[in-house]
């Protein structure tokens, strides 16, 4: 292998890592919601889309960089998540699985429609982002926005892991995820935990959206590009496992870019989805899921 292809390969591996960390951040919210209440949120990509639009409007109306408005975006999406839980999810907790799938599915279509109605179907980009251009590290060219985004994703995912494992509230959330009834007997209000899971899940997706907004086009159906990948990450990592989603995100990012590198970009999605099927069939509980 020539030196040039080696550099290209290294470049590919690093870009896989960078996008994989974003996938991980999107997936931790999804896996948290699933772990706590066994509901698959098909509208998760739309939370990401809302995060992107929040960043876009902050930048174009108030000239605030997505990185500055990030805490606000996170809070806003937290509120959206809690609202969705209170208005819709709470009522379908005991419903048949089909109703649960279609409730979040309908929300997905509804939110896409609303975004299209309010903000037009155009592709938009954040004007004058704070982080721009490229830097060279060890002979590899790295996009600064991508690098910033992946660092942000690591921080937030790590922060969530710390919250779930090291704080009282987070442990209560974990307890609900492991055994809802036992947790209730211990005096944990599961209703409150469900709302919290939705809030945090949506906020994670929103933060991922804000981080992506500086280098990814923003449009109403952008969530579709990420939701299937997020499912793959959740399944590979093991439903409900935040640490699993982190590692699975990186693996999926690598499979995607290396598949694109060796097989051809047109097939990278098919490869990721094939990985998904293999995991579903041969190890449905994923890398670090509960047995």
């Amino acid at each position: 292998m020539t030196h040039l292809t080696m550099t290209m390969l290294a470049q590919t591996i690093v870009s896989g890592l960078m996008i994989g960390l974003i996938y991980a951040l999107i997936a931790v919210g999804l896996t948290l919601i699933f772990g706590v209440m066994d509901i698959v949120n098909f509208a998760h990509g739309e939370f990401l889309m809302l995060g992107m639009y929040a960043s876009f409007w902050g930048a174009s109306l108030f000239f605030l960089d997505p990185l500055f408005t990030l805490p606000l975006t996170a809070l806003m999406l937290f509120a959206v998540g809690v609202l969705v839980y209170r208005l819709v999810i709470r009522r379908i907790l005991a419903a048949p699985m089909l109703s649960q799938i279609f409730a979040t599915f309908g929300m997905m279509i509804l939110l896409r429609g609303l975004a299209q109605f309010l903000w037009k179907p155009d592709h938009r980009t954040v004007p004058h982002a704070l982080v721009e251009g490229k830097i060279t590290l060890f002979g590899l060219q790295l996009g600064t926005p991508q690098l910033t985004a992946s660092l942000g994703a690591v921080l937030v995912t790590g922060g969530l892991w710390w919250f779930l494992n090291r704080t009282r509230l987070g442990t209560a959330l974990e307890a609900t995820s492991i055994d809802r009834e036992a947790a209730t007997l211990m005096g944990i209000n599961s209703e409150r935990m469900f709302a919290l899971a939705w809030g945090i899940g949506a906020a994670c997706a929103g933060i991922a959206g804000a981080l992506l907004s500086t280098y990814f086009p923003i449009f109403p159906e952008v969530g579709a590009d990420f939701i299937l990948v997020a499912f793959v990450v959740v399944v590979l990592g093991g439903f409900g496992s935040v640490a699993g989603a982190f590692w699975a995100g990186i693996i999926v990012g690598e499979v995607e870019v290396l598949g694109g590198f060796f097989v051809g970009p047109a097939y990278k999605n098919a490869l990721v989805l094939s990985l998904f099927l293999l995991v579903l069939l041969f190890r449905p509980r994923g890398l670090m899921g509960k047995a």
Binding site: V88, R91, I92, A95, P96, L98, S99, Q100, F102, A103, F105, G106, M107, M108, I109, L110, L111, R112, G113, L114, A115, Q116, F117, K120, P121, P220
Partner: peptide
């Protein structure tokens, strides 16, 4: 073209059916 109203109605109906009449 591009208004998204059909999706809003469509999605709204799905949510309502799922919630109130499984």
């Amino acid at each position: 073209t591009g208004m998204g109203t059909d999706m809003i109605i469509y999605g709204g109906i799905i949510v309502i059916i799922a919630m109130f009449s499984p």
